[in-house]
Each structure stands twice: as C-alpha cells, then as structure tokens.
Simulated assay, not measured.
Amino acid sequence: MTKTALITGASRGLGAALARALAPTHHIIAVAKTTGALEELDDQIKSVGGAATLAPMDITVDAAMQTLCRGIHDRWGSLDLWAHTAIHAAPLAPASMIDAKDMTKSVATNVTATTTLITYLAPLLGTKGTAMFFDDPQAGAPFYGSYGATKAAQIALARSWQAETARTGPNVHIATPKPMPTATRGRFHPGEDRAGLNDPMTEAARLIADLNL
C-alpha cells in the first residue's frame, strides 16, 4: 500500500522540494493557499511517476483543517508522514515598531495553526507515523521579533509533543535546514549572494534521509 505524506506549505521552497523528493515513495497531500503553485507542483510530481492530492487551503481556517483531516481519514484511514513547512514571515522590524496585524498573523499561522494541526493529525499519525518540524533559530535576533518569537513558540510546541510521545509515538522529528534560496530567506536577506546557498532539493533529500523512513 502506498504511503502518504502531508506537506503543509507545499507550494514553494522546502515544502515543494520535500513533496518532489517524497513523490516516488509516497502519495503527496499538498496543502497551500496558492492554487497555481500547487498545480505546478502536481505536474512536477507526475513527471517522476508520482501522484498528489491538492488541497488549496489556509491552515489558519479551522473548518478547512477539519475537512482536510476528515478527508485523509476517510480515504486512507491514517497518515504516514506530516512535514510542516508553512510559515508566516513577517517583515523585519524593531521590537518597538512591530505592526499589530503582522504579529496577529504570525501568531495565527506559526503558533495557533500548528497547535490545531497537532491536535487533528495526532490520531491519523497514530503510533508509527512521523511528524517533521523545521527550526530556524532567530529568537532574540535584532529585528526578528515577530518571526523569531512565533517560530520559537512553534518549535517549543513541537519539542513538547516530541517529549510526550518519545515512548508511544508518533515520531516527532525537529530538523534545522541549511540556508536555501527560498522566498522567505529572500525577504529577510534582500540582495544576498545566493550562489553559496544550498539547493532545496539536495537539502530535502538530506532531511528525508535523516528520518530513515
């Protein structure tokens, strides 16, 4: 039976690379807000003989996530892998000048939605599934207040879940990807020479290999 992999934040960057890398061995359930980018990903997955289910959804919408998880349950009964790459990268700003709307969106996407997804996906992952989270340790860095604080909170949630399930499963894996030329990094480092950054597909393959799936 084909394994299943849910990628939240699958439309670009590391999420898209993970989806492509997993496509030969997993049916990809790709979640993102951008329909056009998901359709491009679908073409890439098909080109390597894989198959995908596209879910153009906003992870901050609770009803949408309920529908997604119910659909996974009804079709497959369980989930083998969840890779959570969705993130809101608020603009860099001094802590004293953080825009309230940016902080609200950062909390909703990076913290609240992650909490909701853990709650809904834990039963689908069961004792043998794997959840992947991706650290980006910017907490306390100058101008990273909104992103750094909410990303750190997301990883804190993942670490708590990891500790709680160490003996029972699912396997909760927290990785720190190497710098890649993604759109998120481009927002934080405009004008950066990207020649020395790591290729997302190479990095995706490394991260997957670390899981020993």
Results as ranks from 00 to 15, higher is better:
Gln154Pro: 06
Phe134Arg: 04
Tyr144Met: 12
Phe188Tyr: 08
Leu81Thr: 07
Asp58Ile: 02
Thr104Leu: 08
Arg167Gly: 09
His88Phe: 15
Ala139Arg: 13
Leu124Phe: 13
Thr165Leu: 15
Gly71Cys: 06
Gln154Tyr: 09
Thr165Glu: 12
Asp193Gly: 01
Leu197Gln: 03
Thr60Glu: 00
Trp76Val: 05
Ala83Tyr: 10
Leu121Phe: 12
Gly77Cys: 09
Ala195Ile: 09
Ala64Ile: 06
Thr53Met: 11
Gly186Phe: 02
Leu197Ala: 06
Thr184Lys: 09
Phe133Asn: 03
Thr85Leu: 07
Thr104His: 12
Val111Thr: 10
Ala183Glu: 01
Gly186Asn: 03
Asn110Met: 03
Met132Pro: 09
Leu92Asn: 02
Thr119Pro: 07
Glu192Trp: 01
Val61Ile: 12
Gly140Gln: 05
Gly148Leu: 00
Pro181Tyr: 00
Phe134Ala: 01
Asp62Val: 15
Gly71Phe: 05
Ile87Lys: 05
Gly126Gln: 05
Leu125Ile: 14
Met132Asp: 03
Ala55Lys: 12
Thr165Ser: 14
Asp193Lys: 07
Thr112His: 07
Ala100Gln: 07
Val111Gln: 00
Arg185Val: 14
Ala158Asn: 05
Leu79Trp: 05
Pro123Arg: 13
Gly145Lys: 02
Thr184Trp: 07
Leu54Ile: 08
Ala100Val: 07
Leu79Cys: 03
Ala139Gly: 06
Asn110Ala: 01
Lys178Asn: 15
Ala83Cys: 13
Pro137Cys: 02
Val61Arg: 12
Met97Gln: 15
Cys69Val: 06
Ser106Lys: 08
Pro91Phe: 10
Pro56Cys: 10
Lys178Ala: 15
Lys101Ile: 06
Tyr147Asp: 05
Lys128Ala: 08
Ile155Phe: 06
Tyr147Phe: 12
Lys105Asp: 14
Pro137Asp: 04
Arg167Trp: 14
Gln66Met: 11
Leu79Ser: 06
Asp99Cys: 07
Leu68Arg: 02
Ala122Lys: 15
Ala89Thr: 03
Ser96Arg: 09
Phe143Arg: 12
Ile155Asp: 00
Asp80Thr: 04
Gly77Val: 14
Ala163Ile: 04
Ala95Gln: 09
Phe143Leu: 14
Pro56Ile: 00
Ala149Glu: 01
Ala89Leu: 09
Thr168Gly: 13
His173Glu: 14
Ala158Gln: 01
Gln154Val: 01
Asp102Pro: 02
Ile174Ala: 10
Pro56Ser: 04
Ala158Arg: 00
Thr109Ser: 03
Val111Lys: 03
Thr112Phe: 04
Arg194Glu: 15
Gly148Glu: 02
Trp82Met: 07
Asp58Asn: 11
Ala95Met: 13
Gln138Ile: 03
Asp74His: 00
Pro91Ala: 08
Asp62Tyr: 15
Met103Val: 06
Thr67Leu: 01
Asp80Ile: 06
Trp161Glu: 09
Gly126Asn: 01
